[in-house]
């Protein structure tokens, strides 16, 4: 579980407008400057053990920033996130673990990195390869993988040990139907062992019928939170209106 209190997160990015002929002629300094994006503005959220939490919101509403802040990858401006162990984030097009080596080898390296004994990994490897389900490609370097294949491998690695909190940011969107089903089974197991899953998806109907609770983010603040059907309905009505 996680307790988030009055969380504010902002990040700085370069603002690089097109330079006109006059700036070039007068050789004025580049108009490039920092812009601060205040992406999460005061979120309070308590996630429970065994809870499947869905997060909806328009592009740019702060969903991904909230998840990144929960893993500690983005510094927090103010407020706090308290967790038992660092949440695991599964993002779309996420980093390839070790692009040059095979998928099978990456599974093994990932397992050893989280502290699973080598003997146990060797025993489980065939089973894990079957779970990834990408056939012979498992022995090819992951730099040659499609985004869907990579997502399957990453999901498998991320759930090698049951995480306390798993954050899924659209990571299943690129998988095919059969993999999505298997991934949901695995998520079910995580929830069953008192884990928490936070799912960000634009497939909101799916969230509405799978999740225990759904939160709706608008401009970095939670607009509504609670019963999945109700929140998703309100969100869809709002999207249709604007």
């Amino acid at each position: 579980m996680a307790i988030i209190e009055d969380l504010h997160v902002s990040y700085r990015t370069y603002h690089d407008p097109k330079r006109g002929i006059r700036q070039l002629a007068t050789r004025s300094k580049s108009p490039r400057r920092h812009t601060t994006v205040h992406a999460v503005r005061g979120v309070d959220l308590t996630l429970h053990e065994g809870e499947y939490f869905g997060l909806v919101g328009k592009n740019g509403s702060g969903k991904s920033t909230l998840l990144s802040a929960m893993t500690g990858l983005l510094p927090i401006d103010s407020g706090s996130v308290r967790v038992r162990s660092r949440p695991r984030l599964l993002g779309i097009g996420g980093a390839a673990m070790r692009p040059g080596v095979s998928g099978r080898q990456n599974l093994l390296i990932g397992g050893l990195a989280v502290g699973i004994p080598k003997r146990q990994m060797d025993e489980q490897l065939d089973e894990l390869v079957a779970f990834v389900g990408i056939g012979d490609a498992i022995d090819r370097p992951i730099s040659s993988y499609s985004s869907g294949m990579r997502a399957r491998l990453q999901f498998t690695v991320a759930t090698l040990t049951a995480p306390d909190i798993l954050l899924v940011d659209e990571a299943l969107a690129v998988g095919d139907a059969s993999f999505k089903e298997r991934a949901q089974d695995r998520i079910g197991q995580i929830l069953g062992s008192a884990g928490t899953v936070v799912m960000v998806s634009h497939n909101v109907e799916d969230l509405a019928h799978r999740c225990d609770r759904v939160g709706w983010l608008v401009e970095g603040m939670i607009k509504e939170i609670g019963d999945p059907e109700t929140v998703v309905e309100a969100y869809l009505a709002d999207s249709a209106g604007s």
Partner: peptide, 11 residues
């Protein structure tokens, strides 16, 4: 070099 591994798994 191992940023990918750092982002993928916890260690």
């Amino acid at each position: 070099r191992d940023a990918g591994l750092i982002r993928s798994v916890e260690f």
